[in-house]
Amino acid sequence: MKYIIATILVVLILLTLPNKSTKMNTLLPHKTILAFGDSLTYGHGASYDESYPAHLSSLTGHKVINAGMNGETSDEGLQRLPKLLEDKSIKLMILCFGGNDILRRQSMDALKNNLKTMIRMAKAKEIDVLLVAVPNIGLFGLTPLELYEEVAKEEKVPLLDGVLANILSQPSLKNDQIHPNALGYKQMAEKIYKSLVENGWLAN
């Protein structure tokens, strides 16, 4: 009987311990951030040095690779990611995909699975992930997509939600209906920087 009780106690202790997969590692000065996504990452609507990765590099002092590709869907991004992850200096990936999947009315289940696969690829390389949610673009404006919250919860990664929806709802911050302008990308970088501090990747 005492062995059964001891076993139960061990299980209870394990259940109350924090999940190690949610613990973020502070970025060392020489480590790299990978900004991976589509035109929102590339910086469409502004000059290349006004993209959010460029602003984020200035804010953090870290090298930030702008791996954004205009017009790319999550299917295409999934094929491109393995080569990028070969860079051993990368310790954090900022993942922002979904706009082109939404615009082309592709499967949201496929988008969700692609995002989950990308996150798992990064984790397999011991790279942390920050997921950035893209809003649904419909006839009635911008609305949240629950799949981002689901992915973040299932894969145990932090989620930055609402930032793009907020930027794209302000005419002064956007270049067109789906892309920020230079000021919008700057604000996007500032919000991401704040999230990196809050999640422990960067010291305040």
Rank of each mutant, 00 (worst) to 15 (best):
M1L: 14
M1G: 15
K2A: 15
K2D: 13
Y3W: 10
A6I: 01
I8R: 06
V11R: 03
V11Y: 11
L12V: 09
I13V: 12
L14H: 11
T16D: 12
N19S: 14
N19Q: 13
S21C: 02
K23R: 10
M24Q: 14
M24T: 14
N25K: 14
T26V: 13
T26G: 13
P29R: 07
P29T: 08
H30V: 04
K31V: 01
T32Y: 10
I33E: 06
I33M: 09
D38S: 15
L40R: 07
G43M: 04
G43D: 06
G43C: 05
G45E: 02
A46E: 04
A46S: 11
S47C: 01
Y52E: 00
H55V: 12
S58V: 09
T60Y: 06
G61R: 11
H62P: 06
K63Q: 15
K63N: 15
N66Q: 06
N66P: 07
G68V: 04
M69R: 13
M69L: 14
N70K: 15
G71R: 11
S74Y: 02
S74I: 01
D75G: 04
E76S: 10
L78M: 10
Q79W: 06
R80Y: 02
L84H: 10
L85F: 09
E86D: 15
D87N: 15
K88C: 06
K88N: 12
K91A: 09
L92E: 10
L92M: 08
I94H: 08
L95V: 00
F97Q: 01
F97N: 04
F97E: 01
G99W: 00
I102K: 00
L103Q: 10
R104H: 09
M108K: 09
M108E: 10
M108L: 14
D109C: 07
L111W: 02
K112Q: 12
N113L: 09
N114T: 00
L115N: 04
K116I: 00
M118N: 11
A122E: 11
K123A: 00
K123W: 05
A124Y: 12
E126C: 01
V129H: 09
V129Q: 04
V134W: 01
P135M: 03
N136E: 13
F140G: 07
T143A: 15
L145M: 15
L145T: 00
Y148R: 05
E150F: 02
V151M: 11
V151G: 12
A152H: 01
A152Q: 00
K153R: 13
E154K: 08
E154Q: 12
E155W: 03
V157G: 11
P158L: 03
L159W: 05
G162N: 14
N166C: 07
S169T: 08
S169M: 00
S169E: 05
Q170E: 06
Q170I: 03
K174L: 05
K174T: 05
I178Y: 08
H179L: 01
P180L: 03
N181M: 05
A182S: 12
Y185H: 03
Y185V: 07
M188W: 03
A189P: 02
I192K: 05
K194C: 02
K194N: 09
K194W: 01
L196Y: 07
V197N: 13
N199E: 13
G200C: 04
G200E: 02
G200L: 01
G200P: 12
A203W: 00
